[in-house]
Write a protein that binds this DNA or RNA. Structure first.
Lengths: 152, 152
DNA sequence: GTCCATGCAAACTGTTTGCACGCGC
DNA sequence: GCGCGTGCAAACAGTTTGCATGGAC
């Protein structure tokens, strides 16, 4: 579901939060990206528009956006957190240990997992994290170390 | 599969590692626990047997044990890493956001997820992390903050 | 005896927080 | 104008590392 900007302010207000330029900027950075940005990258890209924005603000904004439900947090690999805009349907991730690329996928099977855990343990499931890792097609042939490049 | 201690030394040797008292101790701590210990807890329990053992050694030992395949690492919740002995079959986790308890479960559906990702993207899947969170049966009724107690 | 593993403390990284100022509402 | 949000820097927590000593093999 795509959320028209018109409602953004209301979304914040409903959560007792204010819509600031920084928060809007950070959300835009995530929406314009291919997803899975780590905090440092979000900060770097946000500074292109607002050189003054601080890392602490990025952390705080991401926490608020996550709380409101506009942003999702993932722990890919073992490393630090990654974030993406929550515009679209839920999905899961595969990380290539060779080149670092992340492949998104979705599967209806997870709903059945949730259903079965719910039935067996009577637990209420609110969040799901499924993360696969291994080697992508290319890295299987040429088992190079791979490169994880990003702009500066 | 249970691994007889007789082979332990060979397992280490095959990986070019030495079997030290500290590493054996840390492995025993994990095997005797109910699983999902964080590093601090492993250290605390290991010190009961060997008051001298350092936190750095615990970190290094866990890394080696994980590399050798005797121990599995999990990132439950958003927090720090948890470890468990890899004696038994793979399984997955549900964490209650109320009381912090962890429920283990297994499901054949994950194999099908792996299979489907493998077929669709030709990726070689080496590791799977599935983590659910929400509220357990008790915490759904009494939505208390819950308590997360552990020995000292 | 060789060399990896350990203990200690210091360094590092990602994240959080206290405080004074600024801006959304 | 009130009060939350921001920027800055300092504080923190978890984890890693350099170095001299000790123990596995």
């Amino acid at each position: 579901m795509v959320r028209p900007n018109t409602n953004l302010k209301e979304t914040f207000h409903a959560a007792g939060r204010r819509l600031t330029s920084q928060r809007r900027l950070i959300l835009r950075v995530l929406e314009e990206s291919d997803g899975h940005l780590d905090v440092e990258t979000v900060h770097r890209r946000a500074k292109r528009q607002n050189a003054e924005i601080s890392l602490a603000t990025v952390y705080r904004a991401l926490a608020v956006l996550k709380e409101i439900g506009l942003v999702r947090e993932h722990r890919l690999g073992e490393e630090h957190a990654h974030y993406e805009a929550a515009n679209d349907h839920p999905h899961y991730h595969f990380t290539c240990l060779g080149c670092g690329q992340v492949i998104e996928f979705d599967t209806p099977l997870i709903d059945r997992v949730i259903q079965s855990v719910h039935e067996r343990h009577r637990a209420q499931i609110l969040d799901v994290h499924l993360h696969l890792s291994g080697y992508c097609e290319q890295c299987q042939r040429s088992n190079n170390g791979g490169s994880y490049n990003d702009e500066t």
